[in-house]
Simulated assay, not measured.
Amino acid sequence: MSRWLTEAVPRGRIAAFRTLIYLFVAADLVIFTPWVRTRASVPGDLYQPLLIGRILPLPTPTPTLVAVIFWVLLLVALVAATGRAPRLLGWTVCALYLEWMIIAMSYGKVDHDRFALLVALAVLPTAGRARHGDTTRTEAGGWALRVTQIAVICTYFLAAFAKLRFGGLDWLTGSVLARAIIRRGTDLADLIAQVPYLLIVAQFGIVAFELLSPVVFLLRERWRLAMVGFFYSFHAVTIATITISFAPHLAAMASFLPLERIRPMVWARRLVGREARGSAADAPEQAHGDPEPTPLDPASVGAGAEPVPPGGQAPVVGRPAGP
């Protein structure tokens, strides 16, 4: 089990995954969860912190507190994405983003799509330094990715467990997807809803997929990547039908992918170098045309050699020039 948990991976994969996760945190602040800043204007009496917020304890959000967390977290996440000071900046991002999520989820609604992302933020600082493209393998980095992968799969498996725990078997035959389509469905979802019993079949399929998700750890790499591709396609259909993105979960699920093969900076350098070489090849050798041929110095080739007349052909050295 310990060998499986610490299976070594290339450091380049850690560097790429770290950049992806920290850039997503920055994007999350300005794209997916900017509404958290509105919590500062909500009366403090409505703030009911999660268990972790009660244990620590954490202060009631104020406009100043929320603004400071937003701007500091945004800046630190962008710097951390470069790979500098991975432990110091990593722990800082983890602590600030955890507080950001506690503020977001302490007003009556808790999203489970951020569980794996929070785990990734907690374990990435332990992976140490890593450079893009580095093929050196690291067990510490392997442990960080494996723990994130387990969190991703737990999100699926425990979601199925919650469905059956609170909804029972009626969840499978109920109108869960039908209600979701009525609330936030797209035109594609309306077409699917017209097919008899298709939504019921989809609900059985969702629960089966979530319960069987741990099988991904038993597959060989090729089939494991294929199954992860199915996970992504499942979420693509979810977005296209009921507009639920699970974006944080999708970012964390990249821990399954060989991200070290994606090297945008290397590609950019090669592209710039190729363009530079192409420009140099297209440039004229001389600004004023081709150079005139230089006459041959007889002293440089020995006696009997004749100078090359302009535009003429040099005689063969060592043979008479005439008949």
Rank of each mutant, 00 (worst) to 15 (best):
E7L: 09
A8G: 10
P10E: 01
I14Y: 04
A15Y: 09
A16M: 13
R18C: 03
R18H: 11
T19W: 02
Y22R: 03
F24Y: 15
V30G: 09
P34R: 07
V36A: 06
S41D: 15
G44L: 04
I52K: 00
R54L: 12
I55A: 14
L56E: 10
P59I: 09
V66W: 00
A67D: 15
I69V: 15
V72T: 14
V72R: 00
L73T: 06
V76S: 06
V76Q: 06
A80Q: 04
G83T: 11
P86A: 08
P86M: 08
W91D: 01
C94Y: 13
C94I: 03
C94K: 02
L96A: 04
Y97H: 13
L98A: 14
M101H: 04
A104P: 00
M105C: 00
Y107S: 03
G108R: 07
G108N: 11
R114P: 00
F115Q: 04
V119D: 08
A120P: 12
L121K: 06
L124M: 15
L124S: 00
T126M: 14
T126L: 15
G128L: 07
G128E: 12
D134L: 07
T138C: 15
G142P: 05
G142C: 04
L145N: 03
R146E: 03
V147L: 14
A151L: 07
Y156I: 06
Y156G: 09
A160D: 13
A160E: 10
F161V: 14
F161T: 05
L164R: 02
R165M: 11
F166N: 12
F166E: 12
G168I: 05
D170H: 13
W171M: 10
V176H: 13
L177K: 06
R179V: 09
R183C: 03
G185F: 03
D190Y: 02
I192Y: 13
A193H: 08
Q194V: 09
P196I: 05
P196K: 04
Y197I: 06
Q203P: 12
G205L: 13
G205C: 09
I206W: 01
A208M: 12
L211P: 08
P214A: 08
F217G: 08
L218D: 01
L219M: 13
E221I: 01
E221Y: 00
W223P: 00
W223V: 08
R224T: 00
L225R: 14
M227R: 09
F231H: 13
Y232M: 13
Y232Q: 10
I242C: 10
A247W: 13
A247M: 14
P248Y: 10
H249F: 15
L250H: 02
P264W: 07
P264T: 09
M265S: 14
R269Q: 11
R269C: 08
L271E: 02
E275A: 12
A276Q: 10
R277G: 07
G278Y: 03
Q286F: 15
A287L: 13
A287C: 00
D290R: 11
D290G: 04
E292L: 15
P293K: 02
P295T: 05
D297R: 09
S300A: 15
V301D: 05
E306K: 00
E306V: 01
P309W: 01
G311Y: 11
G311L: 08
G311S: 10
G312T: 07
G312F: 02
Q313N: 07
Q313W: 07
V317I: 14
G318L: 02
R319L: 11
P320H: 01
